[in-house]
Every structure is written in structure tokens, then in C-alpha cells.
Amino acid sequence: MAGWDTWLTVAAIALAALACAMLIVAIMPLLARYALARPNARSSHKIPTPQGAGIAVVAATLTVAAGAIAVVSSAAAIPALLFGATVLIAVVGTIDDIHPIPVLPRLLLQAIAVGIVLAVLPENLQILPMVPVWIERAVLLVAALWFVNLVNFMDGLDWMTVSEVVPIALALVALGLAGFLPADATLIAAALGGAMLGFAPFNRPVAKVFLGDVGSLPIGLLLGWCLLQLALHGHVAAALLLPLYYLADSTLTLVRRIAKREVFWEAHRTHFYQRATDNGFPVIGVVGRVFGLNLLLAALAGVSVLLGSAAVDAVALLGGAAAVTFVLAQFGRPRRIGLG
């Protein structure tokens, strides 16, 4: 992207943050009245708390991203179907927040939204060109559906989604400004990162409001799409490194629950970050470690993209895996007295 576009990207971050914060203030009375999240088996909060701030995050992201992309329309077209699928999955999340939808219908509706996004990918754009397109698209459908849901699963602690999405989104912005990501994906990442910064003050421990499924599901779809664009443009290692903590925590938790023959689709609090609070870690200590880890993963992703060799990718992935393992191991055992 050109130097002029750099200023547009920075403006998109700032405008999305401001718009999101203003929208949250505007809708907070309605959320407090009609959308209280009451503590359940999965919850880390102790008292009923308004949810649904994701409405503001998604609205600010889509509006600002659409406007910014329109400004550089000579280089990028507004991905209307992506935005439409995002609205669809946000509606599904809204309904689920108000009146829980059974598992299978919920997954079907989410799969439709994900499928819409994948269906419009050019056939000549693949991660693995030697694999038949239909096989790769089928794998991507399952992977994207899992990613959308894992973002939702991991949104169970104040500032947790902020500490994950902000570093990833801003890393994607930096890669886009350096020319490694298309303009539309760069501007969507900028708007999403900005919107999450606008949401952050309201979600700081102890949170005044939560995202709700109306926020976490669309965030997963938009973030997953940006990461997919990075992978489709030849940077698979970076696309795996950026969300590696989320991938590891949620996937290992799912595998562990299946191995124990638990009803794995029901609400629970056995993710590593949830076990960390049960093991004596303060909320700030947990999200602070996740944020620091994500900064490290972003740096490794940057090195992987800039140096661009298979050997560097392998070393970066091993380093990222080691760092994630270290944090998960910390979260999985009781905290030592005197540590934050």
C-alpha cells in the first residue's frame, strides 16, 4: 500500500475505535435492560452483566472498513458477500444470546455463512495448488467453522478477546502496509483492531459489558478471513503463528474433553485460561500473559514473512509452539505465591 494509504489505515483504526465506543455508550441502557448475561457453568463473572457490545464492534468494523475500502476502490473492491455473511452470523449470535439455538441448527447456519465466504474465492487461489480445489475448500470449511467457534469459546474472560484480536489485527495491518496482504484485508483488519480498542475500556476487569455471541462469532469470521488471505498469498506459517495460542488452547481442550467422554459441546470452564484463574492467577495476569505471548507470535510471524524461507518458517513455528506450550503449562498448574 502507498504512503497515502498508510494514513487511511491509521485513520480507519482511530475512527473505528471512536465509533465503537460511542455506539456502546448509546446502546448500553438497552443491553442492561434486555441482554443480561447471567453466570453459568462457563462464566468467570459472578453477577449478571450486560452482553451484546459486539453489535457496536461489528457495526463499527463493517462501516469503517467499507468506507475505507471504497476510498481505495481502484485497488480493492468491497467484499460484499463477506460483509453479508458477517451480518448473517451476527444475527445468529444475537438470537443465540437471547434464546439459545440447538447445536445442529446453530452449526448449520454458521456453516452457511462460512460457505458463502469460501464460495467466492477464485478457483486459481489455493494454499496447496497440488490438492484438488474441492478438497481444499472442504477442509477450509471445517477449519473456518472451527475457528469461528473457538473465538467464541475463548471469549470467557474480561479482556481475553481484546488481548488476542488486537495484536493479531495490528500485525495483519503491519504486514498489509508492507505489501504482504491485499488492501481490503488490511483495511478490514485495521477497522476490526480499532473497534476492539474502542471496546476495551468497557471490558477491562471487572467488565461493564461483554461482546456476546453477536460479537465473538463475526469477529471469528472476519479475523479468519484475513488470516486466510495471508495464507492464500503464500504465508501459511504466519497465518498459523498469529492465532496459535487460541488454536492450541481450544483444540487441546476439545481433544481432552472428547478423550474423557464429556459432553464437549456443552458450556464448561476447562480451557487453559479458565483453569488458570481457578489455579490462582488474577485475570490481569492471565490476559497479560496472553497479550505478551501474542506480541511474540506476531514478531515470529513477521520474521517468517520477511525472510520467506521454509527453514525460517519451521524455526518460527517451533519457537511459537514452545512459547505457547510454556504459557499453557503455566496456566495448567497452581500459581506460585508472589507471582502475578
Rank of each mutant, 00 (worst) to 15 (best):
D155V: 13
V114I: 13
P100N: 01
G93P: 02
L175T: 02
L177I: 14
L107P: 01
L104T: 10
P122G: 07
A144H: 00
S74C: 09
T161S: 15
L145N: 07
V142I: 14
V166H: 00
A111V: 13
G93V: 11
W134F: 13
V142A: 11
G156N: 06
V114E: 00
V117P: 00
W159M: 14
S163K: 08
A144Q: 00
V72A: 11
R137T: 12
V162Q: 00
T86R: 00
G93E: 07
I89D: 01
V87N: 09
D155I: 07
A138N: 08
A178D: 12
L145C: 05
D97T: 09
R137Q: 13
I135D: 09
G156R: 09
N149P: 02
F153E: 02
L108A: 15
A144M: 14
V162F: 07
V103S: 08
L157Y: 12
A144D: 01
S73E: 12
I127P: 00
L104N: 05
L157H: 06
N124I: 13
F153K: 05
G156I: 06
V162N: 02
I135N: 11
V92K: 01
S74M: 13
V165F: 04
A174C: 07
L108Q: 05
I168F: 05
I89A: 01
A77Y: 08
G156S: 06
V117Q: 02
E164Y: 01
L157C: 03
V72G: 01
L140F: 07
D97E: 06
N152R: 04
L125H: 14
S73Q: 13
P102E: 09
A113F: 01
L82C: 03
A76Y: 09
I78T: 14
D96Q: 03
I101D: 11
D96N: 10
A111I: 12
I116L: 15
V92D: 04
I127R: 03
L125K: 15
L109E: 02
A144Y: 00
W159H: 08
I168R: 00
V151W: 12
P102L: 11
A80E: 08
V139L: 15
V142C: 10
P79D: 08
A113W: 03
